[in-house]
């Protein structure tokens, strides 16, 4: 049996864990086990965490399906990904979103990006959020028949849509 990580060397470290009634197994060569810090049996919970076992199972299941889905943008298939452990293009993250979700959960601290956002996109998000807030206020104003306020909000929304940069800056 080959190591699940490097797929090169013989797996000599075999770990298994029962979770939610399902048995999960990891087979690693000594080097990969050491690199992942799982050669110490007491540290096993970590193996689950680092390797994203759920993901490995899902990937295996996906690969054995008859008609293999391919990324519409770059043509990468699930088994291409399994072989190289690399995705083909940014769109692959949408194409393989389902199987990636489990894998990302195992690999990382969270499942949502926290941190730097490119400046252009940040503006986009702020404008979106502002528009949604204004829209809600507008509906609320109409509901209580405050037409003066509703007219003001409608103008603000129009202005924001036409010139997002100026409104956010102001």
């Amino acid at each position: 049996m080959l190591c699940m990580l490097c797929q090169k060397k013989e797996a000599r470290v075999h770990l298994s864990d029962v979770k939610n009634g399902k048995i999960k197994k990891v087979d690693l060569c000594e080097d990969c086990a050491k690199a992942k810090g799982v050669d110490d049996p007491t540290g096993f919970a970590l193996a689950d965490l680092l390797l994203g076992l759920g993901a490995t199972e899902e990937l295996a299941a996906g690969a054995s399906a008859d008609a293999e889905p391919a990324c519409p943008n770059c043509g990468l298939t699930q088994s291409d990904f399994k072989k190289a452990s690399r995705l083909g293009c940014p769109t692959c993250y949408e194409t393989f979103a389902e199987s990636l979700a489990g894998m990302l959960k195992g690999m990382h601290t969270g499942t949502r990006h926290v941190g730097k956002v490119p400046r252009g996109l940040k503006l986009g998000r702020e404008v979106q959020e502002r528009l949604q807030a204004l829209q809600r206020s507008l509906e609320a104003a109409i509901a209580v028949e405050n037409y003066e306020e509703a007219a003001r909000l409608r103008d603000a929304i129009k202005q924001l849509r036409e010139n997002p940069g100026a409104v956010v800056a102001g």
Binding site: S85, R86, L87, P90, Y93, L100, M103, L104, M107, H108, T111, R112, H113, V114, G115, K116, V117, P118, L121, R125
Partner: peptide, 21 residues
Amino acid sequence: YAFSHTLGYLTACPTNVGTGI
């Protein structure tokens, strides 16, 4: 840049996605 609001900076290997740092 290839960027998603949920997944952050998109990278060839999923181990780097997010901050890419």
